[in-house]
Nucleic acid binder design. Structure first.
Length: 925
RNA sequence: GCGAAAGUGGCGGAAUUGGCAGACGCGCUGGCCUUAGGAGCCAGUGGGCUAACGCCCGUGGGGGUUCGAGUCCCCCCUUUCGCACCA
């Protein structure tokens, strides 16, 4: 029994593939193209099992597409700007360049061991000047065309880190790394006008994307249709409000401004000023957590000022409250407590009038007795011009009452139909060193102008000093700061750099031609390869990267960046229409591999009790053979914090054990000197992280079982879209499979001649396998593809044992099976292909053709059901007709048991055999 | 609160359009074999009743549609994720 010698074989073939450039993807207009893309990794230093999990199936599918006859490009690169490199520089004095490049080198090596068909000649690294030159160039084009601008905005400021944080780095109002609170601070920042594209981004018509991502983006964009209405203060200043329910304007009994609203100071009376100032200050100082943790209790203060409601010239009091956000709509609302729940609660709390303006079918509402706001349909009442107009539950102009109100507002020039979005323009500036510089200078007059194209890229200076405060060293670098404007006058360079999501918004285009110097990408390449056909990656990017990159593509299209590409397409008779609207046509999200669950050590601890704590002078880790043992505390370690153990004792109670510094430790699995850190505690299923100690290192598994086994396990052991906890024991199944295939395929064909029956049967199984493997690769259900191959392994073994298969039939079956395995387990497939006497390379072979007639069974078993329950089976020929099937079914013993005594079935239903299913008769009594 | 996805043996997971629930694998049980291993081979393995033929129950819970429901409809529970005072 020889097992698959992966050490000898896998490295050998990877070297050959590299030497031959087997995976170079070259433009070939004679062949159909397929651009397969998997999200590029951040070079954190170590390739994680999660990278394997994400990339291996993408690779398998790219390989499958290649065997289907497509010219496939499958590139790889690194998203190499970002905070960790800078933190390493601050903490350990390593320059971000060095740290990043060392990590990339290591990860390239690790990626290589995966045996994926990456085209390394197309590798793109976002922190190289040849890449970020074009990131800057794109920014410049956006800026010159009004898609980038600078403005003051409330941003996330971390006092402890002394820096602005990206929205995605803020979780529940705290910094995701340190858990320190983040406050909102007004700062001048750079934005991209993603809002210009809000409506187009809501159109997913061209995309085959998961419904969940479409929904998440739709919600994130958060389009609401309604009206803008202008109220006036008593000082005759306009106050614009946005509402989705303009029809309830006649029911407005107060207004609320966001505390930060610019008109607050103006409308506040001197009497109210002290408490208003206090409230504004409090709101400004509150962190996100505080503001949202104040449950749902409404707070607010009356300004003393009034505004005039344009529909009825009524005076309505103006309040401020922090439930109104400056960043949404206009930062001011009209409050209609009768028909809005938040306004209702506020009015009840502060004793403000509640005035119903919708009369439900059930009768007039009474504002003094209502228990909650009324949101349903009815007829408008107390509403002047729109009295008696029906109001339904439709949104926007589809609702007659809203349409009537908007007409009225337009006629009286005091409001109009309007749309607002939850989405904000994209804040891309970061006060950090390790990012693409924003290519802008500030002139002597304080204006900003973009750096001329021929001066790009603005290079990151290498001679910089990193501050422990985290302040960007660019701010203290005279050589970088000092420059000239377009007229040659002294100017100051912008020190902010771009969010790394800007780099990843267009990297799929840089892959086309990573060294191209005349633009972000070579139109000759783009014309052939674009757009991306199949994109895979994590669902956590649903509202970030996946939205940003759609925006980028649309903006690039509108700035004419694909015009030349379209010309090239036309010259090759490819119609460019609609090909630049979306970056990636099809998307599939994988799940996440979580850490492995394992129990903590069971220990017996001996020592002295000090209150509730056992001071242990001796701790022994029990092995199964020890039985329960004896000790002052016996049980499983649930937690360990330094030398304090939490132990679940045999009776279920918890005990605390403090391990003395000089305690005697007995840990059988550890040789030599023992240390309290070696005691294992119970590990729950959680995301992998270094601090939890549950990280799975793919390299170890490659060394142990080989790359193909690890690839196969990652594809077989999980529902790819779902993910789940790593489980080391389950890898045995695929290791056995690989070894079995090795043994079966290398031991030579069975001796003797075959019988036609056995050979036909084997061929039938083979074609059933082709169909199932193919379906698995098409649909990203890799687990079923490998299950089919394992089942075929079982068939081969049974055939070897029982049946007579001649050498030609045997070898033909194996050759086909090896081609089916090639996308999934490329190394062993290549080796076996050679050993079966075929020419290099299996990866250049075409995919086996499925033949339905060969897969069909001649004889099938007719399933006999009585009242829908299986009662018998009978062998019949595959093409059995309805009458014969009913006849045979009724005659079976299983059916007759229910028909004794001359019972007549009420109905007999024949269910013809469908693909992969047996025919059935259901006898209804 | 809103939105999305999910809930199937001891475990990971299959089940195409409503048509034999549990493919394939892990684990477990029994047997065999051996140069004793982190092996290998053969058989069995949803639960219950039965000497057996068989029968009953079974896809989170409860109703419904249907000859037939893991799958469709209604209500409820649980879990995970996203958004969260969105006017």
């Amino acid at each position: 029994m020889s097992s698959y010698p992966h050490q000898e074989i896998e490295g050998k073939w990877r070297a050959r593939w590299d030497a031959d450039g087997l995976y170079r993807a070259k433009v070939d207009w004679q062949r159909p193209k397929h651009y397969a893309l998997t999200m590029l990794p951040y070079p954190s230093g170590d390739l994680h099992i999660g990278h394997w999990y994400a990339m291996v199936p993408s690779d398998a599918r790219a390989r499958y597409m290649r065997m289907r006859g497509y010219n496939v490009m499958f590139p790889m690169g690194f998203d190499a700007f970002g905070l960790p490199a800078e933190n390493a520089a601050i903490q350990r004095g390593i320059h971000p360049w060095k740290w990043t490049y060392a990590n990339i080198e290591n990860m390239r090596r690790q990626l290589h061991s995966m045996g994926a068909m990456f085209d390394w000649e197309r590798e793109a690294i976002s922190c190289t000047p040849q890449f970020y030159r074009w990131t800057e160039w794109l920014f410049k084009k956006f800026y010159d065309n009004g898609l980038a601008y600078r403005a003051e905005a409330l941003v996330n400021w971390s006092e402890s880190l002394q820096t602005v944080l990206a929205n995605e780095q803020v979780i529940d109002g705290t910094d995701e790394r340190t858990g320190q609170p983040v406050v909102q601070k007004l700062m001048s920042q750079w934005f991209l006008r993603i809002l210009n594209y809000a409506d187009e981004l809501l159109d997913f018509g061209q995309l085959d994307w998961p419904e969940s991502v479409v929904k998440a983006q739709t919600n994130w964009i958060g389009r609401s249709a309604g009206a803008r209405v202008t109220f006036r203060t008593e000082q005759d200043e306009p106050i614009e409000i946005f509402t989705t329910r303009p029809d309830t304007l006649w029911g407005a009994t107060f207004m609320v401004l966001a505390p930060e609203h610019p008109l607050v100071a103006e409308v506040t009376t001197s009497e109210q000023r002290p408490i208003i100032d206090a409230y504004v200050l409090e709101a400004a100082q509150a962190t996100e957590i505080e503001r949202s943790s104040e449950s749902r209790v409404k707070t607010g203060v009356f300004t003393g000022g009034y505004a005039l409601n344009p529909v009825n010239d009524e005076r309505v009091p103006i309040w401020i409250a922090d439930y109104v956000m400056l960043t949404y709509g206009t930062g001011a609302i009209m409050a209609v407590p009768a028909h809005d729940q938040r306004d209702f609660e506020f009015a009840r709390q502060f004793g403000i009038e509640i005035r119903p303006v919708i009369r439900p079918a059930t009768g007039e509402l009474d504002g003094t007795t209502m228990a909650e706001a009324y949101l349903g349909p009815g007829v408008m009442t107390n509403s002047g011009a729109i009295d008696n107009v029906p109001c339904n539950e439709a949104k926007g102009l589809n609702n007659p009452s809203i349409a009537a109100t908007i007409d009225w507002l337009k006629k009286h020039n005091t409001g109009d139909e309007a749309v607002t979005y939850r989405l904000r323009d994209w804040l891309i500036s970061r006060q950090r060193y390790w990012g693409a510089p924003i290519p802008v200078v500030k002139t002597g007059t304080g204006d900003y102008e973009s750096v001329p194209e021929h001066e790009l890229p603005v290079l990151l200076p290498e001679d910089v000093e990193f501050m422990p405060t985290g302040q960007s060293p660019l701010q203290n670098h005279p050589g970088f700061l000092t420059t000239q404007d377009a007229e040659g006058k002294p100017a100051e360079r912008e020190t902010d750099t771009m969010d790394t999501f800007v780099c990843s918004s267009w990297y799929q285009y840089r892959y086309l031609s990573p060294d191209y110097e005349d633009g972000p990408f070579d139109p000759q390449e783009a014309a052939y390869w674009l757009p991306v056909d199949m994109y895979t990656g994590g669902a956590e990017h649903a509202t970030l990267h996946l939205l940003y990159t759609r925006f980028f593509t649309k903006a690039m299209r509108d700035l004419g960046m694909f015009d030349r590409t379209a010309e090239v397409m036309r010259s090759h008779e490819r119609n460019p229409e609609a090909l630049f609207d979306e970056p990636m046509l099809r998307l599939c999200n994988q799940g996440q591999v979580l850490g492995e669950e394992h129990p903590g050590d069971t220990i017996a601890a001996y020592g002295e009790w000090n209150g509730n704590v056992l001071r242990a002078s001796r701790v022994r880790v029990l092995e199964e053979a020890d039985g329960n043992g004896s000790g002052d505390v016996i049980g499983e370690i649930l937690r360990r914090t330094e030398n304090i153990l939490t132990v679940r004792q045999l009776d279920g109670s918890r005990a605390t054990v403090e391990v003395a510094a000089d305690a005697e430790l007995d840990i059988p699995r550890v040789e030599g000197a023992r240390n309290v850190n070696q005691l294992r505690h119970h590990l729950e299923v959680e995301r992998m992280s270094k601090s939890k100690g549950n990280v799975v290192n793919p390299d170890e598994w490659v060394v142990r079982f080989g790359s193909d086994s690890l690839r196969a396990y990652l594809m077989f052991g999980f529902d790819w879209r779902k993910g789940g906890p790593w489980d080391s024991s389950r890898i045995q199944g695929v290791v056995r499979w690989i070894n079995d295939i090795w043994e079966i395929a290398t031991q030579g064909p069975p001796s003797g001649s075959g019988t036609p029956e056995a050979e036909v049967q084997l061929e039938r199984r083979l074609h059933q396998t082709i169909e199932r493997v193919q379906a698995g690769l098409e649909n990203f259900t890799f687990n079923t593809a490998i299950a089919a191959l394992m089942a075929f392994r079982n068939d081969l073994r049974a055939a070897l044992r029982e049946a007579r298969i001649g050498a030609p039939a045997w070898e033909s079956a194996l050759s086909t099976m090896v081609r089916l395995m090639a996308p999934l387990t490329p190394h062993i497939a290549e080796e076996l292909w050679e050993r079966l006497g075929h020419e290099y390379s299996v990866h250049q072979q075409s995919w086996p053709r499925f033949d339905a007639t060969k897969a069909a069974e001649d004889n099938v078993s007719l399933v006999v059901l009585v009242n829908g329950k299986v009662r018998d089976h009978v062998e019949v020929s595959a093409g059995i007709g309805e009458d014969e099937a009913k006849h045979l079914g009724l005659a079976t013993e299983g059916a007759q048991r229910y028909l004794e005594g001359g019972i007549e079935p009420r109905r007999v239903i024949f269910i013809a055999a469908r693909k992969g299913q047996e025919p059935k008769v259901n006898i209804v009594l």
